[in-house]
């Protein structure tokens, strides 16, 4: 079966600095892939390369069989890649409802599209805050909003870059719960996070990056402590 996202020898960087040195892996439909790696190994750069946000990218980035390289960022996102960026990055000058409304897309393509009601049912913390400015939300609420905003684009692939960073254990647990629900609904997810145990519990497959290359790949049950120690230092 054709993968939803296929990366073939992806190289990317900033100016003369090369961060990715030929990354290749696939994400299938309804599959959750966890991308791990120490800081500075190229995880966020890979996300940026997929979305056309990296200054330069080489190799092939195929989404649903179509090459994404060379397309503007908004078109790549509109093709069906929903990003929950590092640092939440909600629109602070918009209300919660406006944050969700402004990014709603791809409804016609989806038989059961995400709507504000459906997002609020999934993320009930937002219900009472719909008219609040996003800048007044707590960190956890902003993260929920960021996930809701990505879902409103009705993505075929949801990309979460450090979605639980800086959150309390209780809020982290809520987000993992939410992701598990999405997984059960058949949502494809590319997950980047520092919480290895939670990622192992959720992911169908794991890819570990080291110095801009895939250092290890496999299923969670084949990820040994030795590999973790060697690649992540944990």
């Amino acid at each position: 079966m054709r993968p939803l996202l296929r990366l073939e020898g992806v190289e990317a960087g900033y100016g003369a600095a090369r961060v990715l040195n030929g990354v290749s892996f696939d994400i299938g439909a309804s599959e959750v892939v966890a991308l791990m790696g120490r800081n500075g190994m190229g995880k966020t750069t890979l996300v940026r390369a997929i979305l056309g946000l990296a200054p330069w990218v080489r190799g092939r980035v195929l989404f649903d069989g179509r090459e994404l390289r060379g397309h503007p960022t908004f078109r790549i996102a509109r093709a069906g890649i929903g990003l929950v960026p590092e640092g939440r990055q909600v629109f602070p000058n918009l209300t919660v409802r406006e944050n969700l409304d402004a990014t709603a897309a791809n409804r016609a393509k989806n038989p059961a599209p995400w709507t504000i009601d459906r997002v609020v049912a999934m993320l009930p913390q937002l219900a009472a805050r719909m008219s609040a400015m996003a800048s007044t939300l707590s960190g956890g609420e902003q993260q929920m909003l960021s996930i809701g905003r990505a879902l409103m684009t009705n993505p075929a692939l949801l990309v979460l870059d450090e979605a639980t960073e800086g959150l309390s254990p209780a809020l982290r647990a809520e987000i993992w719960q939410c992701l598990a629900t999405l997984q059960r609904q058949g949502q494809s997810i590319l997950l980047i996070d520092k919480h290895v145990a939670a990622m192992r519990g959720l992911a169908d497959r794991i890819v570990i990056l080291e110095k801009g290359r895939v250092a290890w790949r496999g299923t969670p049950d084949t990820l040994t402590d030795d590999v973790l120690q060697r690649t992540l230092g944990v």
């Binding site: 979305l51 946000l53 503007p72 960022t73 908004f74 078109r75 996102a77 509109r78 929903g82 990003l83 960026p85 990055q89 629109f91 602070p92 000058n93 918009l94 406006e98 944050n99 409304d101 402004a102 990014t103 709603a104 897309a105 791809n106 905003r149 990505a150 684009t153």
Partner: peptide
């Protein structure tokens, strides 16, 4: 200003790159 159209304009004024990354042709 209160429509999704206005929200896109104001959101992009705060951060255009972010608006592009969520699939909006600013």
């Amino acid at each position: 200003s209160r429509s999704p159209f206005g929200a896109v304009l104001r959101g992009a004024a705060a951060n255009e790159r972010r608006m592009l990354a969520v699939g909006v042709s600013v």
